[in-house]
């Protein structure tokens, strides 16, 4: 669990699993989820709880759905106003 040390200079609003959440402009998606609370994602292999480990693009444990695209690396995607973020629960389900 992470906390913000100070109010950010500028904020954007994203939708996290449908809920409006304020994020700092420039934040990575992973940072927004870590600041929002415990639960991050369920692993596609075995279903265990997982969350970011390295924050620099190596571990791939920060995977998250962004604007409908599954398995984006949350630590490498910068938030944008209105971005739709969804926590992943296992493997992506493809829309046919």
């Amino acid at each position: 669990m992470f906390r913000r040390r100070a109010a950010p200079a500028a904020t954007v609003t994203v939708r996290l699993d449908g809920e409006a959440v304020a994020a700092a402009a420039g934040d990575s998606v992973a940072a927004v989820l870590l600041a929002a609370g415990a639960d991050y994602r369920r692993h596609g292999v075995g279903g265990a709880a997982r969350a970011p480990f390295c924050m620099i693009g190596n571990c791939h444990d920060c995977l998250v759905e962004v604007d409908g695209v599954a398995n984006r690396q949350g630590c490498l995607v910068t938030v944008a106003e209105g971005m739709r973020i969804r926590r992943m629960r296992g493997k992506p389900v493809l829309a046919t």
Binding site: M1, F2, R4, A6, A31, D39, F53, C75
Partner: peptide, 26 residues
Amino acid sequence: GWTLPGVLSAGAAQTLLKASNLVPAG
């Protein structure tokens, strides 16, 4: 247990501090 949420690399915490002004709570 290094795959448990809440276990991060030290560098990850440093990145969160630099980039997002986030620090671990608790």
